[in-house]
Design a protein around this nucleic acid. Structure first.
Length: 347
DNA sequence: AAAAGTTACAACCGCAGCTAA
DNA sequence: CTTAGCTGCGGTTGTAACTTT
């Protein structure tokens, strides 16, 4: 309580600071320290309120302020910290020596926020955006987003850091997208019209590569993937190569629910592309129902919540009712692909 | 060249929390 | 306990600089 009246006082100058004012303020603080900000203007010979002086000093004149463009590392740190801390600009600023909260806030609002939007990432939730109805029209953005986040250059620099959860979650999202499309194709008597381009695009993307996905694969066990996936629907499956590490590390669930065993020599079994992978997988394994949220996001959420209790676990932004609803809301029209317009292709 | 639109960022506003009288 | 003073913080605004038409 007790809001400062200083800025309401009349007769005090407002607006941009002149070099002379800057010099007065700097000289005074160098000689005396700032002491009481309220008393400072009079002592320093400035016709400003103390608040204005404090802001000018902390955001601009302070000698330890780093000026100039933010580095890529700084960008990534801000993104990672924002995911955990939200708009706690001062808290974020403590991790970026020489940067002020105001500077970081401005940088976020003018650069990073837009950048994430264009990548198909919600800058508030740091998840793939879910505010759009056209799933397939947004595949490029989703995949761009997941690849962006999966890129080691864009990962946070801290191992074992909660901030890396974003990467896992998004890779899960990517996998789930693919899986749900396959499921729709496989379980519907009349598969929906999925544009060839969409499947080509999926097939051209690197398969997600993450331990959490492997864990997910171990855990799925509800609806059997239909045996009659029309493989002719996948014109570009040859491009859908599994990465070597997936071959090497994937763990298949034991159909009896007992101990799990590593699949040895998947390469030798010719499960080298997604077509073969699915063929082998569908005989013994199952997929979750067409739904709703991304199963392992809840795990991620819990882990996030561990570090940020303010996150409301009761609301799940992903909980829409169908695959295409859930995944269809990925982006709005602000997000435009870098090199082509996917809508045009689809249409 | 000029007008219109956009971007970037410094600065302001007002609320919240802490402290001291 | 209440209240005023002060500071910190996040949201918002104003405007200079830049770009596009």
């Amino acid at each position: 309580m007790g809001r400062s009246p200083c800025c309401d006082e009349s007769g005090l100058k407002k607006g941009p600071w002149t070099p002379e004012e800057d010099q007065k303020l700097t000289d005074y603080i160098h000689s005396n320290g700032h002491g009481s900000w309220r008393a400072l203007p009079k002592l320093a010979g400035l016709n400003r309120c103390g608040k204005s002086c404090r802001l000018r000093w902390t955001n601009y004149l302070r000698p330890d302020i780093k000026r100039g463009k933010f580095s890529e590392e700084e960008e990534q740190i801000i993104i990672n910290l924002h995911q955990v801390l939200g708009n706690k600009w001062s808290a974020i600023a403590t991790h970026l020596p020489g940067r002020t909260d105001n500077e970081i806030k401005n940088f976020w609002n003018t650069h990073l926020r837009k950048k994430l939007l264009q990548m198909g990432i919600d800058p508030v939730t740091h998840r793939p955006r879910t505010d759009h109805l056209n799933l397939l029209a947004n595949l490029p953005q989703l995949l761009a987003a997941t690849n962006f986040i999966s890129n080691p250059m864009n990962n946070n620099p801290w191992d074992n850091n909660p901030l890396s959860l974003q990467t896992d979650a998004t890779q899960m999202a990517k996998f789930q997208l693919l899986q749900n499309i396959l499921q729709v194709l496989g379980t519907n008597p009349s598969p929906p019209a999925v544009p060839m381009e969409a499947l080509n695009l999926i097939g051209s993307q690197p398969f997600p590569n993450n331990q959490q996905i492997y864990e997910y694969l171990r855990g799925v066990n509800s609806v059997n993937l239909s045996q009659n996936i029309p493989t002719s629907t996948f014109p570009n499956l040859d491009n859908f190569h599994l990465p070597n590490d997936l071959h090497d590390h994937i763990v298949q669930p034991n159909i009896n629910g007992n101990s799990k065993t590593h699949v040895e020599n998947i390469h030798d079994n010719n499960v080298g592309n997604y077509n073969q992978f699915v063929s082998g997988f569908q005989t013994e394994h199952s997929l979750p129902a067409l739904v709703s949220d991304l199963p392992d996001f809840s795990t991620v959420k819990k882990m996030e919540n561990k570090y940020n209790p303010s996150i409301d676990m009761s609301t799940n932004p992903s909980s829409t009712s169908t695959t295409f609803e859930a995944w269809g809301d990925l982006m709005d029209d602000e997000a435009v692909g870098d090199s082509y317009n996917w809508r045009d292709i689809i249409e």
